[in-house]
């Protein structure tokens, strides 16, 4: 892949306050295509707040978000999605009673004819099924019962579906909030492979995790937050691992 000339996502001097709490203090970061950026920090460091600002759930008090060099306002989750930013939340946000394909398109169903008000349009089931099947196939997610409701699927399969859903629509960036936290070893491994494949396809991936093994294995770059400030931006590997841990917990390395 040729070296991209500008980051997909660029956050400049972000501030966010909740009453007396200064959750984000002058945080800047860049996310590049084909790169997994790990976002690290202890509980309460501001990771989730930052993710929520990028995914449109919170508005920044100060600072700017740029997509491909252009400033954007992400006023709602819908606006963020429209801007090509997809978020996979820790608690999944899947619909248990819908199949994977139905989950993919929930809230943005392909439908016709266009002159009808959206709720009254007819579902284009064939097109939705086809795209979903293609993505699941491409990402090599194994679903022995692909038309069953996701209630019947394991935690790993569900997480894989959530990640796959994000890839259908993400044109700029995929945010993953602790995607392996609730998974067993084997299923976590599958999700990590999936994230590597997202990167290989040229997506910019921002990964929040507490698992340092995953960070050193997968992340191209790690940004560390502590008490709302960015305290580190480095390339994670075995040698820098101790530095990263020190940055996270705030000890002097």
């Amino acid at each position: 892949m040729t070296e991209p000339s500008q980051p997909v996502l660029s956050i400049r001097h972000a501030h966010k306050r909740f009453g007396a709490i200064h959750a984000l203090q002058d945080v800047s970061l860049d996310a590049w295509p084909g790169e997994v950026l790990a976002l690290l920090g202890d509980n309460g460091a501001g990771k989730s707040t930052l993710v929520k600002c990028i995914s449109g759930l919170h508005a920044l008090d100060e600072g700017e978000i740029h997509l491909h060099g252009r400033p954007v306002t992400l006023a709602s989750p819908t606006a963020a999605r429209a801007a090509g930013i997809e978020t996979v939340y820790q608690d999944l946000a899947l619909f248990d009673n819908l199949s994977p394909a139905q989950n993919f398109y929930a809230g943005r169903e392909l439908s016709y004819p266009a002159w009808l008000p959206r709720p009254l349009r007819f579902l284009d089931k064939a097109a939705m099924r086809k795209t979903a099947a293609e993505v699941i196939d491409r990402l090599q997610v194994r679903l022995p019962h692909p038309d069953a409701p996701v209630a019947m699927m394991s935690g790993g399969q569900r997480q894989a579906i959530a990640v796959a859903r994000a890839t259908v629509f993400a044109r700029n960036i995929v945010l993953l909030d602790e995607p392996t936290a609730a998974l067993g070893l084997r299923e976590a491994r599958k999700v990590l492979e999936l994230i590597a494949r997202l990167r290989a396809e040229g997506n910019a991936v921002i990964l929040i995790t507490h698992n340092m093994d995953h960070v050193t294995e997968l992340a191209d770059r790690a940004v560390v937050l502590r008490q709302g400030r960015k305290v580190g931006d480095l390339k994670p590997d075995q040698s820098s691992r101790q530095d990263l841990v020190s940055l996270i917990v705030g000890g002097e390395a």
Binding site: A93, F95, D96, Q102, A106, L120, F122
Partner: peptide, 20 residues
């Protein structure tokens, strides 16, 4: 119809439906 799928989705996970 789209509205039918929405009804099912709201029944399945109202929180997620709002988010989507």
């Amino acid at each position: 119809m789209v509205v039918g799928r929405w009804i099912t989705a709201v029944g399945g996970n109202p929180q997620a439906a709002l988010g989507m």
